[in-house]
């Protein structure tokens, strides 16, 4: 079943086509890789799905519904959540609080019920705290819960971002270069984590990543972009040996 369909998407910035008539689709429960050299337009695709950018043309369809007209803050309720290439944590909040923000769209409390701390609010607060702690446990960083997010090393910050995206119980999660700045063992743990998210929680994963061995190891399907266009799509073995892909990466990273 097609979970996310990107259909003929084009995003122009004053003449520059950052994404150019791009189409691909991600199946439910799949780990799908979106790769390409720097500036290829991968993050721009994420930003179009997140609705931060208004595509010049094209449609984005999620679970059979077109989401191209939604507002950015409505995307998470549609079931999609994401991380950012340049970590966008809430710096002056604790790790736990960062995760709790991921729950904001799903709690019913309002300013009056909260101001008077009605028992329903207490209950809800307790529940979301427990849920967030569960996720910190999955990520193995529950001991950092009450420390400031900005005080964490880069690798942990990346994990916190994933945690924050998970709290909303998304059905699709978009990860923008999650392994950037991680060392080998951290990257291995990350690969395990991503597989676990898919296998145990059933989350569909759209992955942008420069670490080719990670991508080739865990992705079932890959779309390769260059200058906003799709130059190749398919299983890792096919992509690896595609002349256009090798051409695009020539001088860049070697494809493992």
């Amino acid at each position: 079943m097609e979970h996310l369909i990107v259909d003929n998407l084009t995003m122009e910035f004053g003449g520059l086509k950052a994404v150019d008539s791009l189409s691909f689709s991600v199946k439910k429960g799949e780990i799908y890789g979106l790769i390409g050299p720097n500036g290829a337009g991968k993050t721009t695709v994420f930003n179009c799905v997140s609705r931060f950018y208004n595509p010049t043309s094209g449609r984005i369809i999620f679970e059979g519904k077109e989401i191209t007209k939604l507002k950015p803050h409505e995307i998470i309720r549609a079931g999609i959540s994401r991380t950012f290439q340049n970590v966008e944590l809430f710096k002056h909040m604790t790790v736990l609080e960062n995760l709790l923000v991921g729950q904001v769209a799903f709690t019913r409390e309002n300013i009056l019920s909260a101001a008077f701390m009605l028992s329903s609010v207490r209950k809800e607060e307790r529940r979301i705290r427990e849920e967030a702690m569960e996720i910190l446990k999955i990520l193995n960083i529950e001991d950092k819960a009450h420390e400031y997010a900005s005080a964490q090393p880069y690798g942990i910050q990346k994990l916190v971002e994933i945690g924050r995206a998970l709290v909303s119980q998304p059905r699709l999660i978009m990860l923008d270069e999650p392994a950037a700045g991680m060392n080998h063992s951290e990257t291995d743990e990350l690969a395990e984590l991503i597989l676990k998210l898919r296998d145990e929680l059933g989350i569909t994963i759209l992955l942008v990543e420069h670490d080719m061995s990670l991508v080739m190891n865990i992705c079932e399907n890959i779309c390769v972009m260059n200058f906003g266009k799709k130059i190749c799509e398919g299983i890792p073995e096919k992509v690896k040996s595609d002349p256009a892909v090798i051409e695009a990466y020539l001088g860049g990273e070697e494809i493992a």
């Binding site: 995307i75 809430f90 799903f106």
Partner: peptide, 17 residues
């Protein structure tokens, strides 16, 4: 939390709904 999130990163806040 929403106010503080918006203060620290408006885009992440939007992405979080």
């Amino acid at each position: 939390r929403s106010l503080m999130a918006m203060r620290d990163s408006e885009i992440a806040a939007k992405a979080m709904g």
